[in-house]
């Protein structure tokens, strides 16, 4: 069964008098447990595709399936529920809630999911430990380095064990050492929990971790390579 399937997806933006084809008849299928990098130059369509797969953006045409459930025709509330239950997001900017501690940031999504207080606390503590932030649970984002914040964001994305993690330039604001650590964490989660990762990046180091590399240009898929 595929984790993600896109069928002939198109998305056009209007910029001034010009139509920008951000997604131009894109069709891909990503299997469960896949570890895929989307690579494209700026404006190539990788973020638009990631947003469409995550239900953050609605395509103009085509069909998108997550776990074989069609999502391009869902309403706002249904999409929010889908993201909450099935998809973890990691963004370029760490995007933590500044007034909550690392633990509370991780717990917040679980609270919305309806996880009991004691359970979500222990889950948050263990996932923060897993991403190497043991002892920093009560720190607020402003008191942490960029790498630590991104780890919190990763912990938040994976704490409820989503089937799919979408990461948009997750290492863009990290130094090379922290980037490697983050990618190793992704690889470990992919290997041990069979979490599907789709990572939009133009960082060659990140691409080197992927099992599959999909290259895009001007909204079209121009190459799809399986990597060892």
């Amino acid at each position: 069964m595929s984790a993600v399937r896109c069928v002939d997806v198109c998305k056009t933006y209007r910029q001034g008098d010009e139509d920008i084809h951000a997604l131009d008849h894109v069709s891909i299928e990503i299997a469960n447990g896949g570890f895929v990098c989307l690579s494209a130059p700026s404006g190539g369509g990788k973020t638009t595709l990631l947003n469409a797969i995550g239900g953050l953006d609605v395509p103009d045409s085509g069909e998108i399936y997550i776990d074989e459930q069609r999502i391009d025709n869902l309403n706002k509330g249904e999409l929010a529920a889908l993201r909450l239950q099935k998809i973890g997001f990691v963004f370029q900017a760490f995007n933590l809630i500044p007034v909550l501690s690392a633990r509370e940031n991780v717990e917040f999504v679980m609270q919305v999911q309806g996880v009991a207080a004691d359970k979500r606390r222990s889950l948050a503590m263990s996932i923060l430990d897993e991403v190497g932030l043991g002892g920093l649970e009560e720190r607020r984002p402003a008191e942490m380095s960029g790498g630590q914040q991104q780890r919190v964001a990763v912990a938040r994305a994976i704490v409820s064990r989503p089937a799919l993690v979408l990461a948009d330039e997750p290492t863009a604001n990290l130094d090379s050492k922290t980037s490697d650590e983050l990618m190793e964490l992704f690889t470990e989660l992919n290997t041990h929990h069979r979490t599907t990762f789709i990572i939009a990046t133009h960082d060659r180091r990140v691409m080197s971790y992927a099992k599959r590399l999909i290259k895009m240009l001007d909204g079209r898929i121009v190459d799809d390579i399986a990597q060892a």
Binding site: G54, L56, R83, L84, F89, I97, P98
Partner: peptide, 12 residues
């Protein structure tokens, strides 16, 4: 921030 929370699946 609200955009992020919505992306995480928090309903408006």
């Amino acid at each position: 921030e609200f955009g992020i929370l919505m992306a995480l699946g928090i309903a408006p």
